[in-house]
Amino acid sequence: MSVREEQSQPAPVEGGSSEEFETERASATPKGGEGCDGCDHRATKPRRKSRLPALNPPLETTQHWFIEAITHPGTIESGMRKAQKIVGRGRVVTDGPILDAVDRMRIYHYAYRARLVECLADDYPTIQYAMGADRFERLASDVIDALPSRKANLNGYGRVVIDYLQRGPGEDGGRVPNRRFYADLARLEWALVEAVHAAPVPALDLPALQAIPIEQWGDVRFTPSASLRILRFDYPVNRFLQHFREDKVPSIPRAKTTATAVYRQGFAVWRMDLDLNMVDLLDALLRGETLGAALAPLEDRLDASHVMAWFMAWVRSGFFATVR
């Protein structure tokens, strides 16, 4: 059986993030730096003070009003108007010495969206590049409105971009041009994030693999390392990402089935292109099948020496934690 050239082991490429270490996620303030600088108010004198009656709703009602107002997808004025039904007619917050109540609320309204857009931009720098900053911000904003954060921790929030882009053509994400390309790219970038956060586990080493008697190979099962992700794509997104990292100004490619492994060794996250036979084999092993069962459907397509070479490379790359 002959093996096509591209079935030989591709060289892995380092690149979990463009920085050596990922950037901060939790912080007291958005990294945009200027707080409400991006919003459009610049009050220079006090506005006319509100004459509405002061309200003191129960704490839960106050918080409900506040979150409705500041997370509103439109302006803070429209957010406060919409939230007013929660508390009735009157003032929940007061005018300040310079800013009026609306401008004070505007600071929170701006910060809410700015922080989450920034979080998604951190996780998806290649999508941001591919779309351009403005379109990415619109996408992120749509994602935030459709799938707001429900967890205390922002580390996992970025997953919502994949969920959004994988929605059907008739739903929100379906309106994004080149949606399937971006969905693939999102899956790759998110795998890099997951690899950063995966638990370190001792990797299976070559001597352990070589110690297995040849007659037992058909019965062995492999446990993957916690960081390993095997991804199939409809577009060559790993190449796109690599060109982006190399400042090569890539354009959106034509559809082509590709596959990539993402994994971490030590601090470094790596990407390795795979051919589809490799993916079939790895998928079966990751499902817990024995090596014999995993190889059976591929038997007439693969050469044993190449399979052995693949395993050597995969073990050297730390794909597997244990063999049993």
């Binding site: 409900h64 979150i67 929170y108 809410y112 922080r115 429900r150 205390a152």
Partner: peptide, 10 residues
């Protein structure tokens, strides 16, 4: 509140 997290210090 109501499980909607702003991630801001309100």
């Amino acid at each position: 509140v109501h499980t909607h997290n702003s991630h801001d210090l309100l």
